[in-house]
């Protein structure tokens, strides 16, 4: 038997995140006294619903995950229809009529995602900065206080 040396086969089952999220939300919403039995009932209801309507939350969650992590592949593969058409129309009105090929839409798509990414990075960095600023004064005060106290005490002891 071969020795497994890579952890690539150890994955979270497909769509598991969605189930876990739903469970946590329902537990927080209902505040049941006995969480395991509540969870059992919750999953039983989901199973019954799946048998009735064919709606599988794990399958749905797996699709969402796929879309979330492989967004770029979806954008590139998407044929010039649906959303990209709407984008094209706005572009056409704004830009010249010549820019109609799929190449420009692709470029725009990349630009849009870059912009969004930049916005996200900036937002998170600003959050980090302000949090640091809020935390800093406390630390600074605490640091200031600590050295002053022993300073005062030491001369007293010496006297």
């Amino acid at each position: 038997m071969s020795i497994p040396f890579s952890n690539t086969t150890q994955r979270i089952p497909r769509g598991f995140a969605n189930l876990l999220e739903g469970l946590a939300r329902e537990v927080l919403r209902n505040q049941p006294p006995d969480i395991p039995s509540f969870a059992a009932k919750y999953f039983e209801n989901l199973l019954i619903e799946r048998e009735k309507t064919g709606f599988d939350p794990t399958e749905w969650g797996a699709k969402l995950e796929d879309r979330y992590y492989n967004n770029r592949a979806f954008n590139e593969l998407a044929p010039p229809g649906g959303k990209s058409q709407a984008e094209e129309k706005t572009e056409e009105s704004a830009q010249s009529e010549v820019a109609e090929t799929s190449g420009t839409t692709e470029e725009n798509g990349v630009k849009l995602t870059e912009e969004q990414a930049a916005l996200k990075i900036q937002a998170s960095f600003r959050g980090y900065k302000t949090r640091k600023e809020i935390n800093c004064p406390k630390e600074a005060i605490a640091e200031k206080e600590e050295p002053t106290e022993p300073d005062k005490k030491e001369p007293e002891q010496a006297q």
């Binding site: 189930l19 999953f43 799946r50 599988d56 794990t58």
Partner: peptide, 22 residues
Amino acid sequence: AAIRTQPRDVLQWSYGYFSALA
């Protein structure tokens, strides 16, 4: 437990897990 067991049908298995736990 889910990562270790790798159930084929996560929903069915989750129900089994929690009913056993309860």
